[in-house]
Amino acid sequence: MDNYLKYRFLEHTADIAVEVRGETLEELFGNSAQAWLETVLGGDFIPYINDVKDVTLRELSSEELLVGFLSELNYLLFVHRWIPARISGLTIEKDNDELFLIARLEGEEFSVERHSLKEEIKAVTFHNMNIVQKGNEFVTRIVFDI
């Protein structure tokens, strides 16, 4: 799947909206993370992976889980100055009423000499977010408040 099919940016007057697809829920989350990365660091960012971090999250709905996951990436970048550049081993499992996510993030320290931030995302919002299964793929919209 090339980038165009994984996600595409939509026209939005004040903020940044993106439509994301994935064959599985896990892939949808991974592609959403890529769209987030392109938003904050630009499409030509080439990572230099030298570190890993693990993330676990538990939420009631897939939308809350996706907002929580992307917010986690945003937090790592804007507070810890660490770029979560790649995702490996992302799994989402049902656990009673909840969804449980485990992900391994690969990345590097943010450095002002080598990187430049394109946008500051204030928050990942719930606006228009509705994860639906269409045929054999999952689709959602995400709006980043900038």
Binding site: F9, E11, H12, T13, A14, I16
Partner: peptide, 8 residues
């Protein structure tokens, strides 16, 4: 208030 998107 904005009239054009950032992209426009």
């Amino acid at each position: 208030g904005r009239m054009q998107s950032r992209h426009q």
